[in-house]
Write a protein that binds this DNA or RNA. Structure first.
Length: 484
RNA sequence: GGCGACGUACCCAAGUGGCUAAGGGAGCGGUCUGCAAAACCGCCAUUCGCCGGUUCGAAUCCGGCCGUCGCCUCCA
């Protein structure tokens, strides 16, 4: 298995520190607002990484944190006139609502910053003792900063030199800091802000320290994989490395994995540009599985351009799978043994799994893996066109569907029954007709067809079509679908 | 200014030294069908931003140019 490591800038063989055990820490979200499609991408990417590692037999411990104390939360609380805790709780709940619908598995541990204040204080204390950090007066209390220049490897992840950073310094100059690049480990709290008691008086943690505290506590001093969005590389992950390695004297993470951005009109989606798309709003319009498929159809490190058109394409792809599934359900064995063409599909079936794994082994190439699944779907349909009727052929076809669903499961795709795909679309599109009513009309139409009353039959079909329902006449019955 | 990524058909997107350049969407043609608008099948890049170079051989490696984007500030 090969994995691209941001730290070394190249593809490396994946070997966990301890045989088959993998500890993964991914940076979660700051709970101060609804999650957007960029958060969704990151969540989906790491969800697939974890699923695939487990599929490969690794024993995975996955930790994803919630940042539940931070400036943005405090600001939001002030704006809404509620407490910071209420803001954090509310948006943690909203996070789960969205992520559950996207099929994201819960992490094994989902720690919150505010539950690890003691651990953070301990680390900050040690960093001061070791000479990596210093406290500065801030009125009644003190703030603690990490002295970047004391850590000789600073910049190794983001490939930046301290000197270059100083030049470009858009960081506001703060006289009390030794260097403008120094970052806060502990912040003295201002009046009205939340605070915790500490050796430096009333204060609250800086942003980066929580990840060091929580990852070390729940996984260990060296993580197998640490990941997050590419925008976290600098300064967040760079700072994490500095404070963690200064604290433990050991490498912080073996592999660093970062997912690319979601762009809109070729620009990174961000609050400041005002072009964010909430997951919530998208789920009003599109199927969650389609959104997931869209996010997985490009390599995780490439930027993905968002466009409504592309989500519709993903829906069309899914429809192709579920349509094939319906077709398979319709198959009947009409002769014992073989109809003599099983060899036309068997070799393709036998190599499917290997090719799929090969794709994901190559730095989690989900786009390629999806291509392989659809290539097989195409072959499967082609095979069914030959009207196989032997027991052996039908069995192979049914097995093929099971294989597609099993492999799809690694990406958490293809898990619904075909009928549920259409039922869900019926709800999503707010189509003004119930399943029962459709069935009634199909029944009525069948009668009309038997009487060769084509006019009435077409009338019913047209009526449903106008609502977005498509009827498909099969040899012995008619099935309904929702138009994509 | 410093660092980095990318540019593959009408659109999205794999492929990073050598079989016919995956897959999907759109389009077109056909099969099925009472009809079909669905489904299914087939067709759809002698060519990979441009110009040079390395090589028996490059979309894939090297150099230059053009274009797009990102990080250097909170950010998935």
């Amino acid at each position: 298995m090969k994995v691209y490591n941001t730290l070394t800038g190249r593809l490396e063989d994946f070997e966990p520190i301890e045989d088959k055990k993998v500890g993964i820490y991914a940076c979660g979200v700051t709970v101060y607002d609804l999650c957007h499609i960029g958060h969704a991408r990151s969540a989906v990417v790491f969800d697939v990484i974890v699923r695939y590692l487990r599929y490969k037999g690794y024993e995975v411990k996955f930790v994803r944190n919630f940042t539940d104390i931070d400036d943005k939360i405090i600001n939001r609380a002030n704006k809404e006139g509620i407490s910071w805790k209420e803001v954090a709780e509310k948006y943690t709940e909203e996070y789960y609502k969205d992520m559950d619908r996207l099929g994201i598995t819960r992490a094994d541990v989902e720690p919150k910053a505010t539950e690890h204040i003691t651990e953070m204080i301990e680390i900050v204390n040690t960093l001061i003792e070791k000479g990596y950090a210093y406290a500065v007066d801030e009125g009644e209390a003190k703030s603690v900063y990490f002295a970047v220049e004391k850590f000789s490897d600073y910049g190794k992840l983001s490939k930046k030199k301290i000197e270059d950073l100083m030049h470009g310094a858009r960081v506001e100059v703060d006289e009390r800091k030794l260097s403008p690049l120094d970052f806060a480990l502990w912040k003295a709290s201002k009046p009205g802000e939340p605070w915790w008691e500490s050796p430096w008086g009333k204060g609250r943690p800086g942003w980066h320290i929580e990840c060091t505290a929580m990852s070390i506590k729940h996984i260990g001093q060296t993580l197998d994989i640490h990941g997050g969005g590419a925008d976290l590389i600098f300064p967040h992950h760079e700072n994490e490395i500095a404070q963690s390695e200064a604290f433990t004297g050991k490498p912080f993470a073996k592999y660093w994995i970062h997912n690319g951005f979601v762009t809109i009109n070729k620009e990174k989606m961000s609050k400041s540009l005002g072009n964010v798309l909430n997951i919530r709003d998208l789920l009003e319009r599109y199927d969650a599985e389609a959104l997931r498929l869209f996010l997985l159809s490009s390599h995780y490190r490439s930027p993905i351009e968002f466009d409504h058109e592309y989500i519709k394409e993903a829906e069309a792809m899914l429809d192709r799978f579920y349509s094939t599934s319906i077709r398979i359900e319709e198959l009947k064995v009409s002769q014992k043994g073989s109809s003599g063409i099983v060899f036309e599909l068997k070799p393709l079936f036998d190599t499917l799994k290997g090719k799929f794994e090969e794709a994901l082994d190559d730095d989690f190439n989900t786009a390629k893996a999806i291509g392989i699944l659809f290539e097989f779907i195409k072959e499967l349909n082609r095979f069914m066109d030959k009207k196989p009727s032997g027991e052996e052929e039908i069995c192979l076809i049914k097995e093929s569907e099971r294989a597609l669903r099993e492999l799809g499961g690694v990406l958490n795709l293809f898990q619904r029954k075909a009928i549920d795909w259409y039922r869900d679309l019926l709800k999503l599109r707010e189509i003004d007709i119930t399943e029962d009513e459709i069935e009634k009309l199909i029944f009525e139409r069948a009668q009309a067809r038997r009487e060769k009353n084509w006019q009435r039959a077409d009338e019913i079909r047209n009526e449903l079509f106008k609502k977005g329902i498509i009827l498909e006449d099969k040899p012995d019955k008619t099935v309904w679908k929702v138009k994509i």
